[in-house]
């Protein structure tokens, strides 16, 4: 049976992991390779790196980091952030990334999804969507939720599937950072409207939240950052718990 995936998300800047990673036994919490290896060891099924490097000049550093991660990691990983062309994506593919995630660039230029899918296959293209409930609708937001668009989340995701997105990473900005649980209503609705895998993101606080999202919605994976980074939830414990609830996981 296909397992539900648990995905830690790491923010990287200039080739280093940033934002409060607090592993006691890690000498250098900024080393993406060491962190990635640790997560793989703990049973993470996949990793997502979000590149928040501001300047284009530093993209080479990101490529080097992706290579370093690919050399050591024996599980798949996705890299997102700042990818706006087939050339950007190809460099990351050749550096060993299994998937790339695109967000704002796809909203600005939906044809990018199609171009990427044609060039590298749909399995390579993850569409990341930041959504926020605004004026009675779930609207796609850019710039980490600060910039609202007029695009309805469900409409955009359906369109992206048609264009060739192979997977959706849906982050609820309303739930992100609250630790009050995933947006199960929206995730359920989205899963019913498309036929590609969906990764739930935003709101994980407890293991019960993961059980909830996997039992109440059709999502294929759940992503979280701080609960894993700060050791609030240990991946082996989480998987045991999910297993107890009859949710298929890789133990």
């Amino acid at each position: 049976m296909l397992s539900k995936r648990i995905i830690p998300c790491l923010d990287v800047k200039d080739g280093r992991t940033v934002k409060g990673v607090n592993f006691v036994d890690l000498k250098d919490a900024g080393d993406p390779v060491a962190l990635a290896a640790q997560y793989a060891q703990q049973g993470a099924d996949e990793l997502v790196f979000l590149d928040i490097t501001a300047t284009h000049e530093r993209r080479d550093t990101t490529i080097d980091m992706v290579k370093a991660v690919a050399r050591e990691l024996n599980i798949p990983f996705t890299i997102g952030g700042g990818i706006s062309s087939v050339a950007n994506a190809e460099a990351l593919l050749n550096a060993g990334a299994d998937k790339i995630s695109i967000n704002s660039a796809a909203v600005r230029n939906p044809a990018l999804i199609e171009e990427l899918a044609k060039a590298f296959g749909v399995q390579f293209v993850v569409l990341a969507v930041d959504t926020k409930y605004t004026g009675g609708k779930n609207l796609v937001h850019l710039n980490g939720g600060r910039l609202a668009t007029e695009l309805e989340t469900e409409t955009w995701i359906k369109r992206a599937e048609e264009l060739g997105a192979g997977e959706i990473l849906l982050t609820s900005m309303d739930h992100d950072g609250t630790k009050q649980g995933f947006d199960c209503n929206l995730l359920d609705k989205i899963c019913r409207s498309i036929n590609i895998p969906v990764i739930a993101s935003g709101g994980a606080g407890t293991t019960a939240h993961f059980t909830e999202v996997f039992t109440q919605t059709g999502v294929d994976a759940a992503l979280a950052a701080s609960v894993f980074h700060f050791g609030e939830i240990a991946i082996p414990d989480l998987k045991q718990e999910l297993n107890k609830h009859g949710i298929p996981v890789r133990l």
């Binding site: 049976m1 296909l2 749909v122 192979g166 036929n195 895998p197 294929d220 890789r250």
Partner: peptide
């Protein structure tokens, strides 16, 4: 086959 109510691609860890 989409009609089997499976998501395509088959992506992830399977037994």
């Amino acid at each position: 086959d989409k009609e089997k109510h499976i998501k395509i691609p088959h992506m992830g860890w399977n037994n």
